[in-house]
Nucleic acid binder design. Structure first.
Length: 346
DNA sequence: AACGCGACCTGCGAGC
DNA sequence: TGCTCGCAGGTCGCGT
């Protein structure tokens, strides 16, 4: 279950293995994993072969690799996404590359997008390594000292996938996401989601203003990737528990301090998970399993139906976590320290 | 605008 | 034992 911290662990690992290398061959083992690349496997492979990976960028749970040297006429998987006849790698506007962040010799216009979905993994593997049971896509990379030759996309449940997308200017002029060499460009397919809480350019003021304008429940807002990205069901429950707020709390009555508390809580939970995942990430593997131990040890709310609330126990009270259906999902709360709003009024 | 829901998937555990 | 069923998760798109 990769959430934002796991994806960031993947990003950090991946960038050290693939940055600067050229994709020499592409093997789509299961076309369902590239179904969001509407032009199909041949187009996908044809446009990737020969491309050079410039960086690995993340916003929320979306991960993408800006590419250089993609074949001219790349359509980025979406008909009409790139102006006809525009060779990929051409600057997206008239500014010189330096004005777009410097340190890049080519301004990319196309990226390889990856979303891990529920069960996706990006693994670096040597050629001799046996295929994984759920291997979906294999990318062969140009040789590099002591580095594995293959980047594999493995996905049991096929909620995730790979596809090519255009890079477009960000709406606020800031970096598209966390990157080694930030550029004010964003993968088109990720342009509709807000910055995530770990993004230095995340604006709490904007978040709070938009939150107050909503007429909905707090958890629904936290899960809305257009408002704040990267928060999934697990971290939403953990953040709400930490902030002592109920999932149904109306957003239009939230005080600034409440909003700040729940957002800080989300950031803390993610940062802790990132630290735990980061420490276990030390091998050739770039995977999403590093944080599973963290989940086992550190969850205070999610999945703990009927178990004691640890915070209440420390305070000498006894209370048990309950599970409710909310948004066709399970939500876990402590009935004592996260009381349900009464009559929707606070 | 808000929101519910189905679709997309597979594996696992519960219950019969 | 073997079957069915419900459930888990994130995202997208459609209908209300």
């Amino acid at each position: 279950m990769p959430e934002l911290p796991e994806v960031e662990v993947v990003r950090r690992g991946l960038v050290s293995w693939v940055r600067g290398r050229t994709i020499t061959a592409v093997e789509v083992v299961d076309p369902r994993s590239i179904r969001r690349h509407v032009l199909g496997p041949e187009d996908f492979a044809g446009n990737l072969e020969g491309a050079r990976v410039l960086d690995v960028v993340r916003r929320g749970k979306f991960l993408w690799m800006p590419l250089a040297d993609t074949p001219a006429g790349t359509a980025a998987g979406t008909p009409g996404a790139t102006p006809a006849g525009t060779p990929a790698g051409t600057p997206v506007d008239d500014r010189p590359a330096d004005a777009l962040g410097g340190a890049v010799e080519t301004v990319p216009s196309v990226a390889l997008m990856a979303h891990l979905g529920m069960s996706g993994q990006l693994l670096m593997q040597d050629t001799g390594a046996a295929d994984e049971k759920h291997l979906k896509v294999r990318l062969r990379l140009s040789p590099a000292d002591g580095m594995p030759e293959q980047l594999r996309f493995v996905d049991q449940r096929i909620f995730g996938g790979l596809f090519l997308t255009s890079l477009i200017p960000t709406s606020d002029g800031g970096p598209g996401g966390l990157a080694e060499t930030p550029l004010p460009l964003i993968a088109e397919e990720a342009a509709h989601i807000a910055r995530d809480p770990l993004d230095p350019y995340f604006s709490f003021d904007d978040f709070y203003r938009r939150l107050r304008a909503r007429k909905t429940g707090l958890k629904r807002a936290l899960l809305d990737q257009g408002l704040v990205s990267g928060i999934g069901n697990i971290y939403a429950d953990e953040a709400l528990w930490k902030a002592r707020l109920h999932f149904a709390r109306p957003t239009d009555t939230l005080r600034r301090a409440d909003a700040a508390r729940v957002l800080d809580a989300a950031r803390e939970v993610m940062t802790d998970a990132l630290a735990a995942g980061g420490t276990s990430f030390d091998s050739l593997y770039v995977n999403v399993n590093g944080a599973s131990g963290y989940f086992d040890r550190s969850l205070n709310a999610y999945g703990r139906e009927g178990k004691e609330c640890t915070r209440c126990a420390e305070a000498g009270r006894v209370s048990f976590l309950r599970r409710d259906q909310f948004m066709n999902r399970s939500s876990y709360t402590c009935p004592v320290c996260q009381p349900r709003p009464r009559n929707g009024r606070w």
